[in-house]
Computed example of a mutant assay.
Amino acid sequence: MAAHKQNCHPDRLLFGGLMGQSRGLGFGSYMTNGLSAYHIAQMAQRRFHILHYEWPYEKLTTFFDDFARNTRCPIFGNMADQQAVTLLNNKNNYHLVYENDSVVVTKEVDLTPVNPSEGFHEMRRIITYIYDKDFAGHFRTKSLLAKAMWQLKPHYADFVKKLMSGVLANGFIGVHLRRTDKIASKEMANIPIQDFALKIREVFASKSYSKCVVFVMTDDQSASDLLQRLLTDRCSLYTIVDLAKTHGFDPGKLFMDPLHQVKHHVPRTNREYWIKHTTQLILEMTILALADDLVCTLSSNLCNVVVLLRGSYNASVYSLDLPWTPV
């Protein structure tokens, strides 16, 4: 909060993230790119906002309380579409200078657009440079902001507590199975579900769990079903749909198309879908962040955000492909 207030002076130029300009990015990609933009804003001592311009998901303000709402530049900024477009069109004012083996962002900076434009790739280049120079510092900055942002409104926080009571109350292993379009596009390797089952067994055997309880977040029902069959003799597996049913809730009223997340084929005008889809994502990520151990693939930006919320990329996080990379 102190660092954010320090950069909120009205004489400092806006440096923010426009969420939703790229129709192909997923929730995790938007979030981790926005967090990276914040790190540059902090370095440049510029005002920072997250704007929901063309953001396909339900607005983050629906779920989270803005910790900076009483400052001159709350995290969740309000801006008219035309203002956002004007800022985005100013992306060519984006400059950086390397001085004495460090990066300096010049005063001409108006915006880091969170989309695959020239400005976006320039932002990624700066972040890669910062990562090479200060891995731990970059993680710490993104993690602190992620945790500060992830302040669920009371009724959502209470609902998470309700879902986690009972079968998850005495410790559990969280698993994120990222499949479908990520594999089809060859953005990640098609890691066998058997490898996930093996890692879960290894984690359970090495820790002091009284029972092997697994919470799974996935976009592929068949992967979840296979993992369940592979672990039947040892572990009990639950999805958010299972937890909802356990506590007497109707998943159909809470979530849209559970475990079949087909966001790339759903029109943005279908608000019922996007509200329920976003609700499911945020609740699942919150539960994964609270797991005793996490098994995932860090090629997934969504898992990256969960690791940031946990506050550590080493202890209790087991990636089956990449190490944590702060970009």
Rank of each mutant, 00 (worst) to 15 (best):
A84W: 06
W55E: 01
I50Y: 13
Q45N: 13
D110T: 14
F63K: 12
T106P: 01
R23Q: 10
F27P: 11
Y94H: 09
N33D: 05
D110Q: 12
N90L: 12
P10V: 07
A41T: 10
I75Q: 07
R23K: 12
Q82K: 14
S29C: 01
N90I: 00
Y129S: 06
D65T: 15
F15R: 04
N100Q: 13
T106Q: 11
G28Q: 09
V97D: 10
P116R: 11
E122M: 13
R72D: 14
I75S: 07
T112F: 08
P113D: 07
R72F: 04
Y129I: 02
N89D: 11
I75W: 13
Y98W: 11
W55T: 00
T112Y: 06
T106Y: 00
G20D: 02
R46N: 12
D11W: 03
T128I: 03
H4P: 07
E108G: 11
L13I: 01
T32E: 08
I75T: 14
R47L: 04
Y53C: 02
L51T: 07
F48Y: 15
H9M: 06
Q82C: 09
Q83K: 13
D101I: 00
Y53M: 03
V103D: 04
D11P: 00
H52L: 02
L18N: 05
V114L: 08
E118W: 10
E58G: 03
D65C: 08
L87W: 10
Y98E: 10
F48T: 05
N89A: 11
M31A: 14
C73A: 13
P74F: 00
H52P: 14
Q83W: 04
N70I: 00
T128W: 09
P74N: 08
S29F: 00
S29K: 06
N89I: 03
A84Q: 09
W55K: 05
H4T: 01
A41P: 04
N92H: 15
P74I: 02
F64M: 10
F67L: 13
Y94C: 04
